[in-house]
Design a protein around this nucleic acid. Structure first.
Lengths: 345, 345
DNA sequence: CTGAAAGCGCTTACAG
DNA sequence: CTGAAAGCGCTTACAG
């Protein structure tokens, strides 16, 4: 059922005007909901619009009005759970607001590549959302020219470069704090940590929360292990941790890392949770179905994406409601992978 | 390092023309690489462009030329492995060709909702790629108005509605055939199948390949079980299959489904692969790290996305090379989850 | 309440 | 090789 059959040029407001017997300015008034149009005229125009299958040309609208109802998201990744969910949340909200959502991937964190990506995104018109969870994203956010509407999705609001761009974040520190406390409360002497890469050189919020819980408990503070984003990094770190007999609890920077750690413990002959407890971060879709199922902290990334768009929408259109900073509360999900430490000899 | 400091209006070709002491048509020639421009003039214009930080306005370009260097992808999902990888492949190629990539999610398969989504995508200008792996996608592909450049990513070229739109696909039939043969060659009497939802009412290519292998081997043909896209559906189907003692081999329509099946077998006390063998489909990132690690068939979805874009690019620009239909060969990846059936009593 | 003009920033013929 | 005109499909003041 193809909307209307014309393979020819789509109808313009002039065509509609002709069909309705009015000037094209009047058509413009009707499609913009301008109040001062005689009801009978409006009827005729509406009928012509319907008959010709008229749709307002978005490109012309953007050029003439200077507004484009478009958002482009700059991100270094589109498939990891957190990133993918944020993108999903943005798309939902954008669609609801009749915005178009474009994606620009930051393939490299090199300054020239990042600058080029930002340029291309700016060229598209409309607003920008940049996911600054990694060095490429952080640089991109920093390279956005002043005056361009942008909101950042950041790892932590603390220690941000001093500017007044709006941003959103999840409380990763609190989440890591809770997960670590859970593990400690089970009786473990301490908790080891396999980190995701940090967005900056500074200590990440997750690391901070983990450390805070250890300090409060007076537990020893092992060096965090540098992981990656995927299971391969977790596997590598897990193999090393498996060799240390005193390691009984491991917190991972995300669920993919935890998956790799679980696998490494398995091939090393260490059983989970009997000998070692493992907890992840994010509650990715597969985590509940692993064996052992994974204890983790659920973060509302989709909601974060929605909040980011709401903020941008507020910047772009005065009429749009400004969303408050999101305070999505992390939720600890206890499953099979965590338990009490083994009895001491 | 913000490109240039002006918060004011960006430079237009008229500004550049003024700075270079030429008419703005000459500027247009220079930025379009038109040959007939005196070298010295070109130099001056280039210098002015550089000095003013001029960037050609994409919206105006699109309106004036009628071409927009934009592709919008219509899809019912953005996070499942296959969909996400296709999106990734399209984005890569689009970026390389200086195209913008927008995403429109098909939230419902209802005809009016699909038609609205197609309209919005068409309004954006540029070309369309629709992922037709599900009813919403299939309908969207069918609802694209004639004359709009579009390529479909389809489940199978067989039985498509009779039109001449270009499309790409992977050889799912062959992949399922190989996976089933692998299981049979291990000594299983037959192979049960947990299906992903089909894009149409017809039998899917994966189901066809599975059945073909069974027939060739003279094996019994159990009814395929209807799953979903995620692990929850696999879990449900797995619980039922676990109850049948004669089930020794299970092929799943994707790796997420297989994850759920593995979990169901575990909670039912059936060990993999000693009692039951399981194989998946797609080789998702986590599959190699599961315990047992998952035997699966790897499909090149990223390459499929690249091919889809190449085809669209060819339609949009005559100069662009037309890609051949992709013949990505499915690759069987044998891991721990498949093995010989248990010895008979 | 409605029409005629100018302009958004470009490109595409048309002149010279 | 380069400039002046018309136009892409709209919106935004300005008139009446």
């Amino acid at each position: 059922m193809n909307v209307t059959g014309h393979t020819s040029r789509p109808a313009s407001i002039r065509d509609v005007a002709g069909a309705a017997g009015v000037s094209y300015q009047t058509v413009s008034r009707v499609i913009n909901g301008h109040p001062s149009v005689k009801p009978s005229t409006r009827e005729r125009v509406l009928a012509a619009i319907d008959e010709l299958g008229f749709r307002r040309n978005a490109t012309a609208l953007a050029l003439a009005s200077g507004r484009s109802r478009a958002v482009t998201v700059l991100t270094a990744n589109t498939t990891h759970h957190g990133y993918a969910s944020i993108l999903q949340g943005i798309e939902e909200s954008a669609r609801a607001a009749s915005y178009t959502m474009a994606i620009g991937v930051l393939e490299s964190a090199e300054e020239p590549a990042v600058a080029a990506a930002v340029q291309r995104a700016a060229d598209a018109g409309g607003g920008l959302i940049v996911i600054a969870y990694d060095p490429a994203g952080v640089r991109a956010l920093g390279a956005v020219p002043a005056g361009l509407p942008v909101v950042g999705v950041v790892e932590t609001p603390a220690g941000r470069p001093d500017d007044d761009r709006p941003w959103v974040w999840t409380d990763d520190r609190e989440a890591a704090y809770e997960a670590t406390r859970h593990l400690l409360s089970l009786g473990h002497d301490t908790v080891h940590y396999v980190a995701i890469p940090s967005s900056t050189r500074r200590t990440s919020a997750r690391t901070t929360g983990w450390r805070q819980a250890l300090r409060e408990a007076g537990a020893p503070e092992p060096r965090p292990m540098q992981g990656s984003w995927g299971p391969a990094g977790g596997y590598k770190a897990g193999l090393r941790l498996a060799k240390a007999p005193d390691v009984t609890a491991i917190l991972c920077g995300n669920d993919d890392l935890a998956l790799g750690v679980l696998r490494a413990l398995h091939v090393s002959g260490r059983s989970v949770p009997d000998e070692v407890s493992v907890a992840g971060f994010d509650d990715a879709p597969h985590s509940a179905y692993l064996t052992p199922s994974l204890t983790t902290v659920r973060l509302d990334f989709t909601g974060l994406g929605r909040a980011a768009f709401a903020l941008l929408h507020g910047v772009l259109e005065e009429s749009a409601p400004i969303a408050p900073h999101p305070v999505s509360v992390p939720e600890l999900v206890v499953r099979e992978s965590s338990g009490p430490p083994p009895a001491r000899d």
